[in-house]
Design a binder for these strands. Sequence first.
DNA 1: CGTTTATGCGCATAAATATTCTAGTTACAA
DNA 2: TTGTAACTAGAATATTTATGCGCATAAACG
Lengths: 316, 316
Amino acid sequence: MPKKEAYPDETLRMAATLYYTDGLGQAEVAKLVRVSQTKISRLLAVALERGIVRISVEEYRARNDKLEHQLCSRFGLESAAVIKVARNAGVEATRHTIGHFGAPFVAAQLPVTGVLAVGGGRSVAEIVQRFRRGETRRLTVVQAMGSIDSSISHVDALELGRAIVKLWGGEFLTLSTPAFVSDKKTRDFFLASDQIKFVWQRLRRADAALVGVASLENSVYTERGVLTAGDIAHLKGCGAVGEICGRFFDAQGRECASRWRDRVISIELDYLKKIPHVVGIAAGAERAAAVAAALKGGMVKSLLIDEAGAQALLAG
Amino acid sequence: MPKKEAYPDETLRMAATLYYTDGLGQAEVAKLVRVSQTKISRLLAVALERGIVRISVEEYRARNDKLEHQLCSRFGLESAAVIKVARNAGVEATRHTIGHFGAPFVAAQLPVTGVLAVGGGRSVAEIVQRFRRGETRRLTVVQAMGSIDSSISHVDALELGRAIVKLWGGEFLTLSTPAFVSDKKTRDFFLASDQIKFVWQRLRRADAALVGVASLENSVYTERGVLTAGDIAHLKGCGAVGEICGRFFDAQGRECASRWRDRVISIELDYLKKIPHVVGIAAGAERAAAVAAALKGGMVKSLLIDEAGAQALLAG
DNA sequence: CGTTTATGCGCATAAATATTCTAGTTACAA
DNA sequence: TTGTAACTAGAATATTTATGCGCATAAACG
């Protein structure tokens, strides 16, 4: 049996008319309907649910189809989403906007079943946060890179993978290692462990991946103090123009043979290239060169980017 | 030349979508659009104006047509408006509701030109308050009764007439006398003055009138202490069942020959009966008997009343 | 029936939104 | 230029709206 009796439509219509059409405040409506303002607030919510009040907004096209097509044909992308972002928006707001409007796109690109490799980063975090709960998937989510530093933040692959599984169900395989270690020997030690080897296997067989594409300048690593200005200079010296999952690549999309290469614990770019569906996320025109390189190297197959970034990419 | 450049529709659409469709708060929208929350608030208002956002409410029929027809045919009314009011609403809320939904009806009943007599009272006040400015009329508004007591309130005919003229334009003739004086002699003194005589003439030739119909029990006069419980008893003894403009009438709608009759300065009921369009307002079932009498006496030609009042009227 | 578990209500108050006020900008005239 | 008027923006603030909470009543259960 349903509830006792939800409020009659007549009352809802009256309250809604007084509030929306006649422009009275809820307190005033309350006097006329003879209930508390509190109740009017709730009544109006119900009226909205029931469709007695309908709010329609002229469609806002958050994506720039034209640029998307251009990107796809020019770079042979599987799919692309170019998100309009307020002019003069900082990179922070850009990521935020991309996240908001791009999440459905990314969710649609990702498979419903199989193995999904997930990298870290702020852009990816913005996306994952906005995945809708409910549409249960059967994914095996695999952490594609270690944690950036000891204080795990919500942008670490560890947290993002966890979040995806929490929302969509499925299994989550963690790396439980740092992203960067002090030297090759330490890295090899980690890689030799059974857990890592197990995860590593899955990563190599991943059906899809979700990663951020960063430039050297604005990487999380510098921000978090993992990489110093000197390190950046060294990497640039090796030809690095971009980074994915802590791995640096040159303008041709080849992983740079830097001294960092042996200290990273994350999916190797050559493996990434073999994953059929890789969704890359990049925010800001500053990242254009990095994205261009990633596309050239074939690391990224689907792209989520902002308008300015797309324009820079097409121009460059 | 118009303004510099109002905000582009694109931005409005974006903000409106984020706010209404996606359910973000204005502060969050502000981050994405890169302006202050203040601005978003204003932007959303503009979006509503421009029709980018549209809010529609299922029509609420505030009037009970069926009862209106019954009233008209039963009492030979020119027109009637029966306003739905929340059950258990007190007389205060009833007046308020009648005022809100009844004002357009009353405005439509009143002429655009000619002489309009205006009485006082809370019901009338609720109506007048809600007349829409703008539709300029050429009325000569005449105060139909003196002021209830020395502290003029916004329900006095004086204020109501003033308000009508302020909204609709036209001329306002005031009585500048109290409604009740101490004795017949004083009243005659007032009536003999040139100003009053002038106004009196107009009143007699009024084309329309707007008055409240009250019972003895809840009249403003008792509330304001102008009439004592003893006075009420006396009036009842004279057969009074209702009051209009400070004048009391019996069940047949005849003005009672009470000792108060000679102390009132207001339009006489016999004159009122001759005015072609008289809109009467009554709130609450308690007034039913008074309204019935007023109708029988032909004082009121159009009626604005609440549902409960109408039902009581038809039942009695 | 008496007891337990829900549901609904409005108060107090937190949160969100609108408005006021001040300062900065632009456009135009002197 | 420089002053002035007319706007525009955002910070501070007032107002309005939503929500957590406890109480009271009603439904469900034993």
